[in-house]
Protein backbone atom coordinates (compact mmCIF):
# COMPACT_ATOMS: atom_id res chain seq x y z
CA UNK A 1 0.00 0.00 0.00
CA UNK A 2 1.56 3.29 -1.04
CA UNK A 3 0.80 6.65 0.50
CA UNK A 4 -1.01 7.87 -2.56
CA UNK A 5 -2.27 4.67 -4.20
CA UNK A 6 -1.14 3.33 -7.56
CA UNK A 7 -4.13 4.88 -9.27
CA UNK A 8 -6.08 7.85 -8.02
CA UNK A 9 -8.89 9.51 -9.85
CA UNK A 10 -10.02 12.82 -8.41
CA UNK A 11 -13.36 14.21 -9.50
CA UNK A 12 -12.84 12.97 -13.03
CA UNK A 13 -15.29 13.73 -15.84
CA UNK A 14 -14.62 11.83 -19.01
CA UNK A 15 -16.40 11.27 -22.31
CA UNK A 16 -16.30 11.82 -26.03
CA UNK A 17 -16.71 15.07 -27.96
CA UNK A 18 -18.58 17.46 -25.73
CA UNK A 19 -20.74 14.98 -23.83
CA UNK A 20 -19.28 13.45 -20.65
CA UNK A 21 -20.08 9.78 -20.15
CA UNK A 22 -18.96 9.81 -16.52
CA UNK A 23 -18.67 12.63 -14.03
CA UNK A 24 -17.44 13.04 -10.47
CA UNK A 25 -15.36 9.87 -10.45
CA UNK A 26 -13.22 9.44 -7.33
CA UNK A 27 -11.38 6.16 -7.18
CA UNK A 28 -8.22 4.84 -5.57
CA UNK A 29 -6.52 1.54 -6.37
CA UNK A 30 -3.70 0.18 -4.24
CA UNK A 31 -0.95 -2.34 -4.84
CA UNK A 32 -1.84 -6.00 -4.51
CA UNK A 33 -5.56 -5.75 -5.05
CA UNK A 34 -7.82 -6.88 -7.85
CA UNK A 35 -10.48 -4.29 -8.58
CA UNK A 36 -13.34 -5.17 -10.90
CA UNK A 37 -15.24 -2.43 -12.66
CA UNK A 38 -18.68 -3.57 -13.67
CA UNK A 39 -21.71 -1.97 -15.25
CA UNK A 40 -24.18 -2.35 -18.06
CA UNK A 41 -22.99 -2.11 -21.67
CA UNK A 42 -22.45 1.52 -22.59
CA UNK A 43 -22.20 2.64 -18.98
CA UNK A 44 -18.66 3.95 -19.48
CA UNK A 45 -16.44 1.22 -18.01
CA UNK A 46 -14.07 1.06 -20.97
CA UNK A 47 -14.12 4.85 -21.26
CA UNK A 48 -12.95 5.04 -17.64
CA UNK A 49 -10.23 2.50 -18.36
CA UNK A 50 -9.04 4.51 -21.37
CA UNK A 51 -8.78 7.58 -19.14
CA UNK A 52 -6.77 5.61 -16.56
CA UNK A 53 -4.20 4.42 -19.10
CA UNK A 54 -3.60 7.77 -20.76
CA UNK A 55 -5.67 7.24 -23.91
CA UNK A 56 -8.50 9.66 -23.17
CA UNK A 57 -7.88 12.96 -21.46
CA UNK A 58 -10.58 13.75 -18.90
CA UNK A 59 -12.69 16.87 -19.43
CA UNK A 60 -12.24 17.62 -15.72
CA UNK A 61 -10.40 16.25 -12.70
CA UNK A 62 -7.08 14.47 -12.51
CA UNK A 63 -5.80 10.94 -13.07
CA UNK A 64 -2.78 10.09 -10.95
CA UNK A 65 -0.67 7.02 -11.65
CA UNK A 66 2.06 6.24 -9.12
CA UNK A 67 1.42 9.61 -7.53
CA UNK A 68 1.89 11.63 -10.71
CA UNK A 69 -0.75 13.52 -12.64
CA UNK A 70 -0.82 11.58 -15.91
CA UNK A 71 -2.23 14.31 -18.10
CA UNK A 72 -0.25 17.20 -16.61
CA UNK A 73 3.18 15.72 -17.30
CA UNK A 74 5.31 16.01 -20.41
CA UNK A 75 5.12 13.35 -23.11
CA UNK A 76 8.39 11.67 -22.15
CA UNK A 77 7.63 11.59 -18.43
CA UNK A 78 4.23 10.12 -19.19
CA UNK A 79 6.00 7.43 -21.20
CA UNK A 80 8.15 6.57 -18.19
CA UNK A 81 5.10 6.27 -15.93
CA UNK A 82 3.14 4.20 -18.47
CA UNK A 83 6.05 1.81 -18.93
CA UNK A 84 5.21 0.53 -15.41
CA UNK A 85 1.73 -0.41 -16.59
CA UNK A 86 0.48 -3.40 -18.58
CA UNK A 87 -2.76 -3.33 -20.53
CA UNK A 88 -4.78 -6.19 -21.97
CA UNK A 89 -7.23 -4.85 -24.52
CA UNK A 90 -10.57 -6.45 -25.23
CA UNK A 91 -9.64 -7.47 -28.77
CA UNK A 92 -6.11 -8.67 -27.78
CA UNK A 93 -4.50 -5.99 -30.06
CA UNK A 94 -1.50 -8.16 -30.89
CA UNK A 95 0.80 -6.60 -33.50
CA UNK A 96 -0.33 -8.35 -36.65
CA UNK A 97 3.00 -7.89 -38.40
CA UNK A 98 4.95 -9.70 -35.66
CA UNK A 99 5.10 -13.31 -34.54
CA UNK A 100 3.73 -14.35 -31.16
CA UNK A 101 7.24 -14.36 -29.69
CA UNK A 102 8.12 -10.95 -31.13
CA UNK A 103 4.90 -9.58 -29.70
CA UNK A 104 5.83 -10.73 -26.21
CA UNK A 105 9.44 -9.61 -26.61
CA UNK A 106 8.38 -6.17 -27.83
CA UNK A 107 8.03 -4.41 -24.42
CA UNK A 108 11.42 -5.77 -23.30
CA UNK A 109 13.08 -4.58 -26.48
CA UNK A 110 11.55 -1.14 -26.35
CA UNK A 111 11.45 -0.35 -22.66
CA UNK A 112 14.55 -2.02 -21.22
CA UNK A 113 18.21 -2.36 -22.05
CA UNK A 114 18.27 -6.09 -21.32
CA UNK A 115 20.18 -8.28 -23.80
CA UNK A 116 17.95 -9.81 -26.47
CA UNK A 117 18.71 -13.34 -25.21
CA UNK A 118 17.34 -12.46 -21.78
CA UNK A 119 14.23 -10.86 -23.26
CA UNK A 120 13.78 -13.96 -25.43
CA UNK A 121 13.96 -16.23 -22.37
CA UNK A 122 11.65 -13.96 -20.40
CA UNK A 123 9.08 -14.03 -23.20
CA UNK A 124 9.22 -17.83 -23.43
CA UNK A 125 8.74 -18.14 -19.65
CA UNK A 126 5.70 -15.88 -19.81
CA UNK A 127 4.26 -17.81 -22.76
CA UNK A 128 4.83 -21.08 -20.91
CA UNK A 129 3.11 -19.73 -17.81
CA UNK A 130 0.01 -19.17 -19.91
CA UNK A 131 0.31 -22.44 -21.82
CA UNK A 132 1.03 -20.92 -25.23
CA UNK A 133 4.76 -21.63 -25.48
CA UNK A 134 4.20 -24.02 -28.37
CA UNK A 135 3.33 -21.24 -30.80
CA UNK A 136 6.16 -18.70 -30.65
CA UNK A 137 6.71 -18.50 -34.40
CA UNK A 138 3.03 -18.32 -35.32
CA UNK A 139 1.54 -15.05 -36.50
CA UNK A 140 -1.42 -13.64 -34.52
CA UNK A 141 -3.75 -14.47 -37.43
CA UNK A 142 -2.77 -18.13 -37.13
CA UNK A 143 -3.85 -18.66 -33.52
CA UNK A 144 -7.26 -18.91 -31.87
CA UNK A 145 -9.00 -16.11 -29.98
CA UNK A 146 -8.30 -17.75 -26.62
CA UNK A 147 -4.64 -18.24 -27.46
CA UNK A 148 -4.39 -14.65 -28.68
CA UNK A 149 -5.83 -13.40 -25.41
CA UNK A 150 -3.27 -15.42 -23.43
CA UNK A 151 -0.43 -14.15 -25.64
CA UNK A 152 -1.70 -10.59 -25.12
CA UNK A 153 -1.66 -11.14 -21.33
CA UNK A 154 1.86 -12.55 -21.61
CA UNK A 155 2.89 -9.38 -23.45
CA UNK A 156 1.18 -7.15 -20.88
CA UNK A 157 2.92 -8.95 -18.04
CA UNK A 158 6.33 -9.75 -19.48
CA UNK A 159 8.04 -6.91 -17.60
CA UNK A 160 6.10 -7.64 -14.39
CA UNK A 161 4.32 -4.27 -14.28
CA UNK A 162 3.09 -2.97 -10.96
CA UNK A 163 -0.30 -2.25 -12.43
CA UNK A 164 -2.27 -4.24 -14.99
CA UNK A 165 -5.47 -3.11 -16.68
CA UNK A 166 -7.64 -5.68 -18.44
CA UNK A 167 -10.63 -4.80 -20.59
CA UNK A 168 -13.05 -7.73 -20.72
CA UNK A 169 -10.32 -10.35 -20.35
CA UNK A 170 -12.69 -13.30 -20.47
CA UNK A 171 -15.02 -12.02 -23.20
CA UNK A 172 -15.47 -14.63 -25.96
CA UNK A 173 -13.33 -17.16 -24.07
CA UNK A 174 -14.38 -20.70 -23.27
CA UNK A 175 -14.55 -21.57 -19.54
CA UNK A 176 -11.17 -23.35 -19.58
CA UNK A 177 -9.34 -20.43 -21.15
CA UNK A 178 -11.20 -18.03 -18.86
CA UNK A 179 -10.05 -20.06 -15.84
CA UNK A 180 -6.42 -20.03 -17.07
CA UNK A 181 -6.58 -16.27 -17.42
CA UNK A 182 -8.23 -15.89 -14.02
CA UNK A 183 -5.55 -18.00 -12.32
CA UNK A 184 -2.84 -15.93 -13.95
CA UNK A 185 -4.42 -12.68 -12.77
CA UNK A 186 -4.55 -14.03 -9.21
CA UNK A 187 -0.90 -15.06 -9.48
CA UNK A 188 0.01 -11.52 -10.55
CA UNK A 189 -1.67 -10.18 -7.44
CA UNK A 190 -0.39 -12.80 -5.01
CA UNK A 191 3.15 -13.49 -6.24
CA UNK A 192 4.02 -10.29 -8.00
CA UNK A 193 2.07 -7.88 -5.79
CA UNK A 194 0.63 -6.15 -8.85
CA UNK A 195 -2.64 -4.28 -8.76
CA UNK A 196 -5.09 -5.60 -11.36
CA UNK A 197 -7.96 -3.53 -12.69
CA UNK A 198 -10.54 -5.59 -14.54
CA UNK A 199 -13.37 -4.24 -16.62
CA UNK A 200 -15.75 -7.11 -16.96
CA UNK A 201 -19.28 -8.33 -17.52
CA UNK A 202 -18.49 -11.76 -16.17
CA UNK A 203 -20.01 -12.00 -12.68
CA UNK A 204 -18.20 -15.29 -12.07
CA UNK A 205 -14.92 -13.41 -12.50
CA UNK A 206 -16.15 -10.71 -10.13
CA UNK A 207 -17.12 -13.24 -7.46
CA UNK A 208 -13.94 -15.31 -7.67
CA UNK A 209 -11.26 -12.70 -8.36
CA UNK A 210 -12.18 -9.30 -7.07
CA UNK A 211 -11.02 -7.86 -3.79
CA UNK A 212 -13.14 -4.82 -4.49
CA UNK A 213 -15.81 -4.12 -7.08
CA UNK A 214 -16.86 -0.77 -8.45
CA UNK A 215 -20.29 -0.48 -10.05
CA UNK A 216 -20.62 2.11 -12.79
CA UNK A 217 -24.13 3.35 -13.55
CA UNK A 218 -25.99 6.57 -14.26
CA UNK A 219 -22.85 8.42 -15.29
CA UNK A 220 -20.85 7.76 -12.14
CA UNK A 221 -19.78 5.29 -9.48
CA UNK A 222 -23.01 3.81 -8.13
CA UNK A 223 -21.52 1.55 -5.49
CA UNK A 224 -18.22 0.06 -4.42
CA UNK A 225 -17.22 -2.71 -2.05
CA UNK A 226 -16.55 -6.41 -1.89
CA UNK A 227 -18.50 -8.61 -4.28
CA UNK A 228 -20.29 -10.33 -1.40
CA UNK A 229 -21.36 -7.01 0.13
CA UNK A 230 -22.59 -5.71 -3.23
CA UNK A 231 -24.49 -8.92 -3.80
CA UNK A 232 -26.60 -8.04 -0.76
CA UNK A 233 -27.13 -4.46 -1.93
CA UNK A 234 -30.71 -3.21 -2.20
CA UNK A 235 -29.81 -0.72 -4.94
CA UNK A 236 -31.85 -1.83 -7.97
CA UNK A 237 -28.98 -1.12 -10.40
CA UNK A 238 -26.52 -3.19 -8.38
CA UNK A 239 -29.05 -5.95 -7.76
CA UNK A 240 -29.85 -6.17 -11.45
CA UNK A 241 -26.16 -6.58 -12.36
CA UNK A 242 -25.54 -9.32 -9.84
CA UNK A 243 -28.74 -11.17 -10.66
CA UNK A 244 -28.20 -10.69 -14.40
CA UNK A 245 -31.54 -8.99 -14.93
CA UNK A 246 -32.23 -6.02 -17.21
CA UNK A 247 -30.71 -2.95 -15.62
CA UNK A 248 -33.41 -0.39 -14.73
CA UNK A 249 -32.97 3.03 -16.24
CA UNK A 250 -31.62 5.42 -13.65
CA UNK A 251 -32.47 9.11 -13.75
CA UNK A 252 -29.76 10.85 -15.70
CA UNK A 253 -28.29 7.52 -16.60
CA UNK A 254 -26.94 6.29 -19.84
Amino acid sequence: MTASGLVELRDVAVGYAESPVLTGIDLRIDAGEIVCIIGASGSGKSTLLRAMVGLLEPAAGAVHLFGQDLYAMRRRSRGRVLSRVGVLFQNDALFSSMSVLDNVMFPGRKLTDLPDEVIHELALIELARLGVDALPERMPQEISGGQAKRVALARANVLAPELIFCDEPTASLDPINAAVLGRELMRLRDDQGSAVVLVTHNMEVVRTLSDRTVVIAAGGIRAAGTASALERSEDPQVKALFRMEPVPRAPGGE
Binding site: V53, G54, L55, R75, R78, G79, R80, V81, L82, S83, V85, V87, F89, N91, A93, L94, F95, S96, P107, K110, L111, R155, F165
Partner: peptide, 22 residues
Amino acid sequence: STMEMRQENDVLRVMGISPVRH
Protein backbone atom coordinates in the same frame (compact mmCIF):
# COMPACT_ATOMS: atom_id res chain seq x y z
CA SER B 1 -5.22 2.93 -40.01
CA THR B 2 -5.57 -0.83 -39.54
CA MET B 3 -3.23 -0.68 -36.55
CA GLU B 4 -5.29 2.18 -35.15
CA MET B 5 -8.51 0.23 -35.61
CA ARG B 6 -7.08 -2.94 -34.06
CA GLN B 7 -5.85 -0.84 -31.08
CA GLU B 8 -2.25 -1.82 -31.84
CA ASN B 9 -1.29 1.86 -31.62
CA ASP B 10 -3.07 2.11 -28.27
CA VAL B 11 -0.82 -0.71 -27.05
CA LEU B 12 2.18 1.39 -28.04
CA ARG B 13 0.75 4.47 -26.35
CA VAL B 14 0.11 2.71 -23.05
CA MET B 15 3.67 1.37 -23.13
CA GLY B 16 4.74 4.99 -23.37
CA ILE B 17 5.94 4.45 -26.95
CA SER B 18 4.92 7.13 -29.41
CA PRO B 19 3.39 5.66 -32.60
CA VAL B 20 4.90 8.63 -34.46
CA ARG B 21 8.43 7.74 -33.34
CA HIS B 22 7.94 4.01 -33.65
